[in-house]
C-alpha cells in the first residue's frame, strides 16, 4: 500500500514536471532558452515516471524474481536516459550554435539590436 502511494506520487510529480517542460517549450522566447526547458524537464520527468512504473510493477507482482528482472531493465532505461538526455541537449545546442541561430541576450548595452532581430 505504501509502495503504491510512493509510485503514484512519483508518476504525478513526473507529469507535473513534464507540464513545466511543455509550457517552457511553448512560452520561452528563443531557441536557447527552450533548450533549458527541454533538457531539464525531460530528464527528471521521464526518470520519475519510469521509476514509478517500476515500483508499481514490483508491488503488484509480489517482488518475484521475474518482476525484479523487469525492474532492473527499467533501471537500465533510466540510466540510459539520464546519460543520453543531457548529451543530446548539449549536441543540439551545439548544432543550433553552428547553424548560426542568434541568441536573445539581455539588455545591458546600447548596441543590442543585432541580437534582437532573427
Amino acid at each position: 500500500m505504501i509502495i503504491e502511494i510512493i509510485s503514484i506520487t512519483m508518476i504525478i510529480s513526473g507529469l507535473f514536471f513534464f507540464l513545466g517542460a511543455v509550457a517552457g517549450i511553448i512560452r520561452f522566447p528563443d531557441f536557447y532558452t527552450r533548450m533549458h526547458a527541454a533538457g531539464k524537464g525531460d530528464t527528471l520527468s521521464t526518470v520519475l515516471v519510469i521509476g514509478g512504473i517500476a515500483l508499481y510493477y514490483m508491488e503488484t507482482h509480489h517482488w518475484e524474481w521475474s518482476a525484479i528482472l523487469v525492474a532492473l531493465k527499467l533501471l537500465a532505461i533510466i540510466i540510459f536516459i539520464f546519460i543520453s538526455s543531457p548529451t543530446s541537449t548539449h549536441i543540439l545546442m551545439k548544432a543550433g550554435f553552428d547553424a548560426g541561430i542568434k541568441p536573445k541576450l539581455k539588455e545591458n548595452s546600447e548596441n543590442n539590436t543585432t541580437s534582437e532581430e532573427s
Partner: peptide, 13 residues
Amino acid sequence: GPTAVDRIVATNM
C-alpha cells in the same frame, strides 16, 4: 517552430 533545430528538439522530447 521558427528554426529547424526547434523542431528537432520537440521531436526528441
